[in-house]
Amino acid sequence: MKKNKDIEVRIEETKKTISGSTYDVTELYIGKKKIGEVLAYGPKEFQSFMDNEELGASKSLDLAIESIIRQWNLHE
Rank of each mutant, 00 (worst) to 15 (best):
M1R: 09
K5Y: 07
S60H: 02
N73G: 07
T26M: 11
Y41D: 10
K34L: 13
I65A: 01
K59N: 02
M50S: 06
K5R: 14
V38R: 08
S58P: 00
T14W: 01
R70N: 10
E54P: 02
T17S: 13
G42W: 02
A57K: 14
Q47G: 02
K2P: 10
L74I: 10
F46K: 04
V25P: 09
Q71V: 09
S21K: 15
I68G: 07
K44Y: 04
D24F: 08
G31C: 06
L28P: 01
E37A: 00
I65H: 03
I35Q: 00
Y29W: 14
E76Q: 13
E76V: 05
E27H: 05
E12D: 06
E12K: 10
S21R: 15
S48P: 07
I35N: 01
E27I: 06
E54D: 11
N73Q: 13
I18M: 09
S58D: 06
T26L: 12
K34N: 11
K2F: 10
L61G: 01
E45C: 13
S21M: 12
N73A: 07
D6T: 00
Y41T: 07
L39T: 04
K32P: 01
E13S: 14
L39G: 01
D24S: 10
R70K: 15
S19D: 11
G42E: 10
Y41Q: 13
L55F: 08
L28M: 11
L61S: 05
E66V: 07
K32C: 01
P43V: 09
M50N: 03
E13D: 15
I30W: 06
K2A: 13
W72K: 13
S60P: 01
K15Y: 05
E66S: 14
D6V: 04
R10F: 09
K5G: 05
T26W: 09
Q47R: 13
R10D: 12
T22F: 05
P43S: 12
F49Q: 02
N52C: 05
L55H: 08
D24H: 07
Y23V: 08
Y23W: 07
K16D: 14
P43K: 12
P43A: 10
L61N: 08
E54I: 06
S19G: 00
I68P: 01
E54M: 12
K34Q: 15
G56D: 06
N4F: 08
V25Y: 12
S67I: 03
E54A: 09
Q71P: 03
K16N: 11
S60V: 03
E66F: 08
K2W: 00
E27F: 03
W72P: 03
N4W: 05
Y23D: 08
N4V: 05
K44R: 12
A40K: 15
S58T: 01
D51M: 06
T26F: 13
D62N: 14
I7E: 04
K15C: 04
